[in-house]
Amino acid sequence: MVDATTQFFAALGSRGHEPLLENARGTLLVELANGAEIERWLVSIDKGDVEVSNGNGEADCTVRARREIFDGLARGEVNAMAALLRGAVLVEGDSELLVLFQRLFPSPNAVASAKG
């Protein structure tokens, strides 16, 4: 079974283009601590064109969190901004990239609950 984080990045990479990131340009490095291991995802964004790879690289914005926190983000259970405010997610560099990137995390609610 594939975990939420891997699934999130795989889906993002296979989409190739993401309209919600059309105003974004830069590289986002996501560093996830999983026990003693550090897992790295490098996302380069050029006006909505997205490439995802595993591994290190120059980044405009680095995001650090424990693996299970990011799993929560990828499942829509954890809110990125609240996590940032309480220090469960840390960000270095161009934080505007993170603001745009967090648009991609899924809804915490069942779809269509907004309709009255």
Binding site: P108, A112, S113
Partner: peptide, 13 residues
Amino acid sequence: LGDWQGTRIDDFR
């Protein structure tokens, strides 16, 4: 405000 525009359904917010 554009950067922060809502993108999902979140009843709490």
